[in-house]
Write a protein that binds this DNA or RNA. Structure first.
Lengths: 338, 338
DNA sequence: AGAGGCTTTGAAATCGATTACATCGATCGT
DNA sequence: ACGATCGATGTAATCGATTTCAAAGCCTCT
């Protein structure tokens, strides 16, 4: 591999001068600059980012730790994060935690060992000591989508409260009264928040949320199936199932199919997180859509602000209800463009 | 940040000894070893991977350059690659090329600058000089899914020929005779291979593939929609559309819907690449499934073999037809477990 | 002409690890 | 008892960049 010394030798200057040329340092004569540049060209020299990082103590790399890449919501988030980071001259290393705290810790450790400049995290659980240590140690951290309460770390997320209210209004208007929820892990903020918002919204319509209608899921498809099967086995099954993420909605759909029932005639289905596929399922699924791309961009902006010494802001963006056909035929005025 | 010197000082030994303990060098006395280890523990020391990489000239990192993360096929591939790499003590940095050669080059350059130990690539186009240079320079390279002909680089892929024959047999048995294809970019090997296999299989049944029934797509949903609209506008539209990847199948489904037609009654649809969502679309979609997970694992195995000085093998695994309902009701014997 | 200032360049230290080589005791074999 | 050997450890070089400091060369001004 050709190093800075080779370039220096080829151009008849010192390594220091080559470095200056490469970093656009002003005090290099035009003559030397062109000589160095052509040596760089000739030798096909590329600076060794490892060596550079060691010296400058910055890697221009961001770590992104998400809970499940196979979840299209996170895939899209990852993509927008990468794009935004690239635009600012940063690379992104993604760590997939698969909803397992140990895996999450593994990735955090690896990323920290690699001295990423900052970390974007969507925590799988409520309390990782590693995360506290990192924050303590001054590592730039930003939470995205989910967060950990009590930590002084900026949070970039979307608030689903209003959309959940809209959702319940929509369901109520369609005549549904027995509404059930497949909740996410209570250890996650999104898990807790969504069920609370749902309960509040139901209360506003004088409806209650009996324990039998609360299923505990883990944001994975299998749990959606299991919980829904439980619902269908009830003496009085719910009229609507609200899956608090898209994978559990998929599982719910499976379960309904397996019972030979149909959506929305026998049971209605709604999901949190909208994804392109929901348009093509049978039937198209009503969902609460987050501004995923904007979330990713805002998160990168906040993290890079923190890294570069500015003061990062927490950001909360609204989610919105996208009405399709999985809860019964909506009145024409409510129909979304989907 | 605490460095090896701090640990050395705390344990009352030299940095060399600390390094030896950390790397399980045999000639360290048990006493010193425990002393060092407890200093490491006390100070919460973690070796700086950047410094280590500079010295040892290895990063224990693999680069994965794929053409589109939003494509569930590649997402799954990426996931299995990461898992397999982790099991062997490697990390993975993913570069998403979004089917753009320039972006692909950007990521290759970044990964090379970071001195990844090897690169797993699914090339977007047929000829990147960067790639040739890298191969020339001795960078361990392995192609996965797609490859570039004429380069002496191991290829890990799945052969769809047999499955495409099965597919045509299936369609023929259902009485379909006018079969159209949405092809992928001719610059990609998978793009070319799939259309060739299709043409051959048709020939085996005495069917031809008229130009009007060949649509040029780019592996993205929008192109699937556009091409399908073209097919539907034909004086004699095809009875079957074969989309050579899952995103174009989605686009095709959109187009069919937009025309107020239904699958499979008005037109049948098949996709290359099976994904979980195909079970839940309306109707469930018949597809050719690649052994994606195994592909990722084999690719990592090949690359790590190459990196660690063993001789890597090219691997070709068979794809298989998964029959669902999007081509009409199959005879009971052919029905898959889906 | 000489002092001072500016531009351009190079020498050398540094980042945090690994590792070849040297060193120092202690043990062993004869 | 003495040289050889071995085990444990330290010293210093090294990886490839960046950056501080010093110095050289050249102007300019008085």
């Amino acid at each position: 591999m050709v190093s800075i010394k080779d370039v220096a030798a080829a151009a008849g200057v010192s390594a220091a001068t080559v470095s200056r040329v490469l970093n656009d340092h002003p005090s290099v004569s035009t003559a030397t600059r062109t000589r160095v540049l052509s040596a760089v060209e000739d030798l096909g020299y590329r600076p060794n980012a490892v060596a550079r990082s060691l010296r400058t103590d910055q890697t221009r790399t961001l770590g992104l730790v998400i809970s499940d890449v196979l979840n299209p919501y996170f895939t899209e988030l990852a993509r927008s994060v990468e794009g935004a980071a690239r635009a600012l001259g940063y690379s992104v290393i993604i760590g997939n935690a698969d909803e397992q705290p140990e895996l999450q810790d593994h990735h955090m450790r690896t990323l920290l060992d690699r001295r990423v400049d900052g970390l974007l995290i969507s925590p799988t659980d409520g309390c990782s000591s590693l995360m506290r240590d990192a924050a303590q140690a001054g590592t730039p951290l930003v939470f995205v989508d989910r967060w950990i309460e009590g930590m002084d770390v900026p949070v970039v997320r979307s608030d689903g409260r209003a959309a959940v209210h809209d959702l319940v209004a929509h369901l109520h208007a369609l005549g549904h009264r027995r509404l059930a929820i497949i909740a996410g892990p209570a250890a996650t903020t999104t898990g807790r928040e969504r069920i609370e918002a749902f309960r509040e919204a139901l209360a506003a319509y004088g409806l209650s949320l009996p324990d039998a209608y609360i299923g505990q899921g883990d944001f994975q498809a299998a749990s959606g199936r299991r919980v829904t099967e439980g619902f269908l086995g009830l003496p009085e099954p719910p009229e609507v199932v609200f899956a608090t993420d898209n994978l559990m909605a998929l599982g719910a759909l499976d379960a309904v199919r397996a019972h030979g029932l149909s959506v929305p005639d026998d049971i209605a289905l709604v999901a949190f997180d909208d994804i392109p596929w929901f348009v093509h399922t049978d039937p198209p699924i009503t969902a609460i859509a987050q501004p995923t791309g904007e979330l990713g961009r805002a998160a990168v902006r906040a993290l890079v602000d923190r890294i570069e010494g500015r003061t990062p802001q927490s950001v909360t963006l609204p989610a919105r209800l996208v009405v399709r056909r999985s809860c019964g035929n909506p009145p024409a005025t409510q129909r979304s463009q989907s």
